[in-house]
């Protein structure tokens, strides 16, 4: 559709916001390195064009860590080539980017396993073990029975 050409035309515009965000990141990274203060920048809230975002992504590049989460839709997380600078991109259920942020931290919180989840997981695992033990025991006794029969 023609009207989308226009949208593309404007989305192509480079506003210089990428540079501004870069220098902001540099400042925050200084603070993080010095005092461990974690911070983040909400990219969705900035009036960046697609071209701006692309430029920012290019400048930051990709580092050692990449992760894909499957949490109510996909979430991509990667460390940029600057250690401590993380890019977190949340997708909604329909593949649309719903939120995007730069996190200056050790590891983005979303990657961390929550204690509550661990507790619940432990519970489940325990249950799973009990089930396993039960089935193993059952299997064993039947095997014994079989061998006796054999």
């Amino acid at each position: 559709m023609r009207s989308h050409d226009a949208a593309d035309c404007c989305a192509d515009a480079v506003t210089g916001l990428a540079e501004a965000v870069l220098s902001e990141i540099a400042d925050l990274l200084d603070q993080f390195a010095a005092s461990g203060a974690q911070s983040s920048i909400d990219l969705s809230g900035l009036p960046m064009t697609d071209a701006d975002r692309e430029k920012l992504a290019q400048r930051l590049g990709r580092g050692e860590v990449q992760a894909t989460l499957d949490v109510a839709g996909q979430t991509d997380v990667w460390e940029t080539q600057y250690a401590g600078v993380w890019w977190v991109r949340h997708f909604g259920g329909n593949g649309q980017v719903i939120s995007e942020e730069i996190a200056i931290t050790h590891v983005p919180a979303i990657l961390l396993t929550h204690r509550e989840d661990a507790r619940a997981a432990a519970e489940r695992l325990r249950k799973a073990c009990e089930v396993l033990e039960a089935t193993t025991a059952a299997d064993q006794s039947s095997a014994e029975r079989d061998s006796i029969h054999a």
Binding site: D42, G45, L69, A72, H90, S99, E101, I110
Partner: peptide, 19 residues
């Protein structure tokens, strides 16, 4: 809990709250 966190970051973005 990750889903809460993700939903929370979505709401924060929507409501223009600080990250």
């Amino acid at each position: 809990r990750r889903a809460f966190l993700k939903y929370a970051s979505y709401v924060a973005t929507l409501m223009a709250l600080p990250p």
